[in-house]
């Protein structure tokens, strides 16, 4: 059942021996110890498990690991560069867009994916992009504020 799969995670080549049907989420967490990516529902309904696949936000719980082979995978651990936070991470910290924080990696990566294609999103575009990401602490107002802040910093910088 197990086969060798080569993944490109946060810029590094990682080889895993795994059932190819296994969700990428589990491989990241259990085989590669990248536990920043969170399980929330296992069926793509909460997006806590969001990662970037070739720059696009996807739910890693719904992504069989075989389909991620050869693509650039970015997890929350790979967003900061040399200790310097990504502007979206900075904005979430600055706006304190977190309570328990469990949804934050998924929120941050979804936002990073949004800003890549839509650098100056409208309020409606922000809500449309993040409406699938659940936060049970319901800290949505500060999350929207963080996304706006990140977009502003991006267009200034």
């Amino acid at each position: 059942m197990r086969t060798k799969i080569t993944l490109l995670v946060n810029g590094a080549r990682r080889e895993v021996q795994t059932d190819p049907e296994r969700p990428l989420l589990e491989v990241l967490r259990e085989d590669l110890q990248l536990t920043g990516t969170k399980y929330g529902c296992g069926e793509g309904q909460c997006r806590a498990c969001t990662v970037l696949l070739d720059g696009k936000a996807v739910t890693s719980c719904m992504t069989p690991v075989r389909t991620a082979a050869g693509k650039q995978i970015t997890t929350i651990e790979g967003l900061a560069q040399n200790g310097k936070l990504h502007r979206v991470q900075e904005a979430f910290q600055e706006a304190e867009a977190m309570q328990c924080g469990y949804c934050v990696p998924g929120m941050v990566l979804t936002t990073a994916g949004l800003l890549k294609n839509t650098p100056r999103p409208t309020e409606a575009q922000i809500v449309a992009a993040l409406n699938g990401n659940l936060c049970r602490c319901c800290g949505y107002p500060s999350i929207v504020a963080a996304v706006r802040l990140a977009a502003r910093e991006q267009s200034n910088g």
Binding site: G36, M98, G101
Partner: peptide
């Protein structure tokens, strides 16, 4: 006072109960 562990939260370094791993751990 800003949340004391906010950096760990935004970088994914924060370990929640589901993230704890131990040597030789099974699931």
């Amino acid at each position: 006072l800003p949340k004391v562990d906010s950096r760990a939260i935004v970088t994914g370094a924060h370990k929640y109960p589901a993230d704890i791993t131990r040597p030789g751990m099974l699931y």
